[in-house]
């Protein structure tokens, strides 16, 4: 995850309290989704950014996961994301995201 974005996540977590935040991702791959999810829960796995060693444990989902999709207006979802469901490996993304949440999400 981009270092500047890590900094912003850390600051926002301090400002609003980690329990009040939800992170929504748009990653193209399961692995990339997993790495970003890991960064905002268990800390930066690449040991490069401000979240290194910081276990925020935030709630984190991918936009294509049912939990998020079910709360979004279906027409807007179809217009903005619908086509990408044919492109992305949604199952793989869901597996990665669920595994990270089970392990590291605190809220």
């Amino acid at each position: 995850m981009d270092l500047e974005n890590q900094k912003r996540v850390k600051e926002l977590s301090e400002q609003y309290g980690p329990e009040n935040l939800v992170v929504v991702l748009g990653a193209a791959e399961g692995e990339a989704a997993g790495l970003t999810a890991e960064t905002v829960t268990a800390g930066d796995p690449t040991y490069a950014g401000p979240l290194t060693g910081v276990q925020l444990g935030l709630k984190v989902y991918h936009i294509c996961e049912e939990e998020i999709k079910s709360e979004v207006d279906p027409g807007v979802y179809d217009e903005q994301v619908g086509m990408m469901e044919m492109v992305l490996d949604v199952d793989e993304i869901v597996d990665e995201m669920s595994a990270i949440r089970e392990q590291f999400t605190k809220y």
Partner: peptide, 14 residues
């Protein structure tokens, strides 16, 4: 972790 970029583009077009 960035996938196969040309393939993703072709899938989007398709």
């Amino acid at each position: 972790g960035a996938g196969d970029v040309p393939l993703a583009n072709y899938k989007m077009i398709a």
